[in-house]
């Protein structure tokens, strides 16, 4: 049975959005010059929202695990709507949920934000440099973790519910809708775009090994490989900070037994140091390798969801110009020769 859906023409969508932002905190990607990232939407930037665009600069994880959060003060719940989330970031919530909603030790602060955030996912109608979800068996359109699927086709906006919360949301803004189903011609168009993007991504990264094969290559790679590729790494941790699945953190103590959960990165020196000074990742090349092993070898053994969703942000963020995909492609080419 098809999920409930509603459609808007541009003017009515505008009216619905204005009503929505009056009563809700709504974030969406806006574009300014060459830069696109989530902003809180008000009337001043409503028309800068960019639709069906891949990869906002900030990974989705940051809304659920902020850079710094006091995790010992009472929860303050607030409904937040995040619009325009690409599939790679939604997919990344899988491993975050496995870790932070772990029934043994659920993180109440993460759980609260997951509960109170409505996620409006969106198909990617473009490909940005380094996008490679398809290489890891993922799709450039939302499949998991979204409440609503939003598609903009020319001047039409189509919303399709993907969860109970999404259905309730459609009812909420249904009063401004003009259509109550996705017409076949629009469905056909959506399918066409999806197939086109998928096919183009596959061609672009034809030489890039898949997720599982990447793990095998990484596990077998000689130590010299890591020394060579870590040569320009400055341990800045940008790769982990920008990664939608990296969530390592520090607990920082404050008086009165308060604790701050602050995002950390395994690329920082001292990440694994124990009392007395022992540190098995003191060597830069070993730290560098650790991150690859974590993402492609160890986490896949432990969790069901992927620890890399192919967004490619780590490549863009690296000031040492280290390209993860080039490393993996070169490992694959050496092996097959």
């Amino acid at each position: 049975m098809p999920r409930p859906a509603i459609t808007f023409e541009e003017r009515r969508w505008d009216v619905a959005m204005k009503a929505l932002i009056k009563q809700n905190k709504l974030l969406a990607p806006v574009v300014k010059h060459d830069f696109q990232d989530y902003e809180i939407i008000g009337e001043h930037n409503l028309h800068q929202i960019i639709y069906n665009h891949p990869k906002p600069t900030t990974p989705l994880k940051t809304f659920f695990l902020p850079i710094k959060q006091n995790v010992t003060i009472p929860l303050q719940e607030e409904r937040v709507i995040i619009m325009g989330v690409p599939a790679c970031d939604l997919q990344a919530l899988g491993i975050l949920d496995e870790m932070y909603l772990d029934p043994d030790y659920p993180d109440l602060y993460y759980a609260s934000r997951r509960r109170t955030t409505l996620l409006i996912g969106t198909d990617c109608h473009q490909i940005l440099p380094h996008c490679h979800c398809v290489s890891y068996g993922l799709k450039p359109y939302p499949q998991l973790h979204h409440d609503i699927l939003l598609t903009r086709l020319n001047s039409k906006v189509i919303l399709e519910a993907a969860s109970k919360a999404g259905e309730a949301f459609l009812q909420e803004i249904g009063q401004w809708a003009e259509g109550y189903e996705i017409v076949e011609s629009d469905q056909e168009k959506i399918r066409e775009i999806r197939a086109d993007i998928e096919q183009r991504l596959a061609v672009l990264h034809a030489d890039l090994p898949g997720y599982k094969m990447s793990g095998d290559l990484i596990e077998d790679a000689a130590e010299e490989v890591w020394q060579e590729h870590a040569f320009t790494c400055v341990s800045c941790g940008a790769c982990a900070t920008i990664c939608p699945t990296c969530t390592c953190f520090l607990l920082i103590d404050r008086p009165d037994f308060e604790k701050i959960r602050q995002m950390d990165a395994c690329q920082y020196p001292g990440f694994t140091r124990v009392a007395g000074g022992e540190d098995h990742l003191i060597n830069l090349a070993e730290r560098f390798k650790h991150r690859y092993m974590c993402k492609y070898v160890w986490k896949p053994k432990k969790f069901h969801s992927p620890a890399c969703t192919g967004c490619g942000r780590c490549i863009e963020a690296c000031i040492g110009k280290i390209n993860k995909n080039e490393i993996l492609t070169s490992l694959a080419s050496v092996t097959t020769l």
Binding site: D107, D264, C266, W298
Partner: peptide, 18 residues
């Protein structure tokens, strides 16, 4: 003995293989 920081299987500091 590793850097067991959170104790909860989350913070990543004590990761030893998987």
């Amino acid at each position: 003995e590793k850097n067991m920081s959170c104790g909860l299987g989350k913070c990543g500091h004590c990761m030893m293989g998987e």
